[in-house]
Nucleic acid binder design. Structure first.
Length: 279
DNA sequence: CCCCAGTCCTGCGGGC
DNA sequence: TGCCCGCAGGACTGGG
């Protein structure tokens, strides 16, 4: 479930390819149905071969490799996608291999067990249309308190659901939304339009703290083991989870409340009814 | 504007 | 011990 911290870890992990030239672009044969490529892989290959990597960025939960042609390779991990550097293809589920001249790093691999991930090559106009400000809000680590409040302040949606809306702000997913609201001591069902300035300050501060710490620890590796850094080492933030998948267990904050799981917008939310008020 | 159900896909864990 | 079912949820679509 790569969210901002996991995707940022991937981005940093492949940043060493900047300035390097693409030697090959391949889709290893596999038993699984192929993931989605847009346009088809042969077209992507033709357009990236021999191109120099100008920058490696991140757009919300997507990794963006920008070439000197101004085309951008957008890698969208969705549920179980992840990037690896100089790891063996026999790990299985390798959906794409990008090889660089010189090195190391020699090659970037996209591994995706469930295969819901998407790889796209977009020119600047397409990038603007698909991932511009109309489709993707400000990055969760960069948005200001005022912008957060003004973008959500009139919404009647529950705060937990609103934080997941990538058009509002980019990067927060299901896991970190629960952790952020627990740190903010705010009930996940609290209605945005009823929140006061102090709530927005708390949500904003908690969001920055949780996400920055998770980036520092290279993200969360869950029991399914589908995420780790580009060297295939697990992240460390899972040991800092306060509520996520801890339903029925005592709250680590107050020690007295019991973590509850509820479903909002068809997704699990975890919170402490004793610590988190406002609904 | 917002909500919901369905879609993609595989691995895993609960229940029997 | 083995099998089946449902769940995990990111992004998107279609209908209300």
């Amino acid at each position: 479930m790569p969210e901002l911290p996991e995707v940022e870890t991937m981005r940093r992990g492949i940043a060493g390819i900047v300035g390097r030239t693409v030697a090959s672009f391949d889709r290893p044969r596999s038993k699984q149905a192929p993931i989605r490529f847009e346009p088809e892989p042969a077209v992507i290959r033709r357009k990236v071969l021999g191109r120099r990597v100008a920058a490696v960025g991140r757009a919300g939960k997507r990794v963006v490799i920008e070439f000197d042609s101004a085309d951008r390779l957008v890698i969208e991990p969705r549920m179980t996608g992840r990037l690896l550097v100089d790891q063996p293809v026999d790990l299985g589920y390798i959906r794409m291999v990008l090889e660089l001249d010189g090195g190391p790093p020699h090659r970037v691999l996209f591994r995706d067990v469930r295969g819901l991930g998407v790889v796209r090559l977009l020119n600047p106009a397409e990038f603007e249309r698909e991932l511009g400000p109309d489709r993707l809000g400000p990055d969760a680590l960069e948005i200001s308190i005022d912008e957060l409040a003004s973008r959500l302040g009139r919404s009647r949606r529950p705060i937990k659901v609103a934080l997941l809306d990538q058009r509002v702000l980019a990067g927060v997913g299901n896991l970190y939304a629960s952790e952020i609201l627990h740190r903010a001591k705010l009930h996940p069902a609290a209605v945005c339009s009823e929140l006061k300035p102090r709530h927005w300050r708390l949500v904003h501060a908690s969001m920055i703290e949780v996400l920055a710490e998770a980036v520092r620890l290279q993200g969360s590796t869950l029991s399914d083991g589908t995420y780790g850094n580009v060297s295939n080492q697990p992240g460390g933030y899972q040991d800092s989870h306060r509520v996520y998948q801890r339903d029925g267990q005592p709250c680590l904050q107050c020690g007295r409340g019991q973590i509850v799981r509820l479903v909002q917008a068809q997704r699990s939310t975890f919170f402490c009814p004793r610590c988190q008020k406002g609904a």
